[in-house]
Computed example of a mutant assay.
Amino acid sequence: MSVKYSVVERANPRKLADPKKFYAQAQGCGEMDFDSMCEDVSNRCTATKADISASISGALITIQQSLRKGEVVRFGEFGSFQVGIRSSGAETQKEFSVGLIKGARITFRPGKLLTNMLKTLDYSQVAKLPVKVAAAPKTGA
């Protein structure tokens, strides 16, 4: 198996006057949903699909609770999760207020398991996938 990519032309956002260059862009080829993942994992061990589903669901709830408390969640060789904050700046520390916080995001840092996987990827070029266009809204007559 290999990671599929297409070649796309892009401008340098820092130097818009420069000529565009061509870059690789990963192309998704399917997806793995939660139910399929639980089935696949259950086929690799002695736990049932229901056991796997309950375990993963429980882990997600625990991760969510830990992140709400501001904890870094270290998930072994898989990686770690942490809440990051987006905010506007203030001229001085005293002028900073919670109102300058624009939102939060979850930062994931892959661990050895995923980092090592990235080192062994194979790549194969495919045609650029078409952009899906939303259907125009119907107007009543």
Rank of each mutant, 00 (worst) to 15 (best):
V3Q: 03
K4G: 01
K4A: 05
V7K: 05
E9F: 05
E9V: 12
R10Q: 12
A11F: 05
A11W: 07
A11M: 09
K15I: 03
K15N: 10
L16A: 13
L16C: 06
A17N: 13
D18W: 08
D18M: 05
P19M: 01
P19H: 05
P19L: 05
K20F: 04
K20R: 12
K21N: 07
K21F: 03
Y23H: 03
Y23A: 07
A24L: 08
Q25H: 09
A26H: 01
A26R: 03
Q27F: 00
Q27T: 06
C29K: 12
C29F: 03
G30R: 06
E31V: 06
E31R: 05
E31K: 11
M32A: 01
M32N: 02
M32P: 00
M32R: 01
F34K: 10
S36P: 00
S36T: 11
S36Y: 04
M37C: 06
C38V: 04
C38I: 01
E39C: 03
E39G: 09
D40L: 11
V41Q: 00
V41S: 00
S42H: 00
N43V: 00
T46E: 09
A47Y: 10
A47H: 08
T48L: 04
K49Y: 06
K49R: 14
K49D: 04
A50P: 00
I52D: 00
S53L: 07
S53V: 05
S55V: 15
I56W: 01
I56H: 02
S57I: 07
G58V: 06
L60G: 03
L60V: 08
L60A: 08
L60P: 00
I61Q: 13
T62F: 05
T62M: 12
I63W: 04
Q64K: 15
Q65R: 14
S66V: 01
S66M: 11
K69H: 11
K69D: 15
G70W: 12
G70C: 12
R74P: 01
F75Q: 01
F78M: 06
G79W: 00
G79Y: 02
S80T: 05
Q82G: 05
Q82F: 03
G84Y: 03
I85D: 04
I85E: 06
R86H: 10
S87V: 02
G89V: 07
G89Y: 04
A90T: 11
A90H: 08
E91S: 14
T92E: 06
T92Y: 09
Q93W: 10
E95L: 14
E95I: 02
S97V: 11
V98G: 13
G99E: 13
L100W: 01
I101K: 08
I101P: 08
K102F: 00
G103V: 04
G103W: 05
A104Q: 14
A104N: 11
A104H: 15
I106M: 07
I106L: 09
I106T: 10
I106G: 05
T107P: 00
F108K: 00
R109S: 14
R109A: 07
G111P: 01
K112S: 15
K112Q: 11
L113G: 04
L114F: 04
L118M: 12
K119F: 02
T120N: 13
L121V: 13
D122H: 11
D122I: 01
Y123L: 15
Y123M: 13
S124K: 14
S124R: 09
S124M: 11
Q125D: 02
V126G: 04
V126F: 00
A127I: 04
A127G: 13
L129R: 15
P130E: 14
P130S: 15
K132V: 10
K138W: 07
K138N: 13
T139C: 07
A141Q: 15
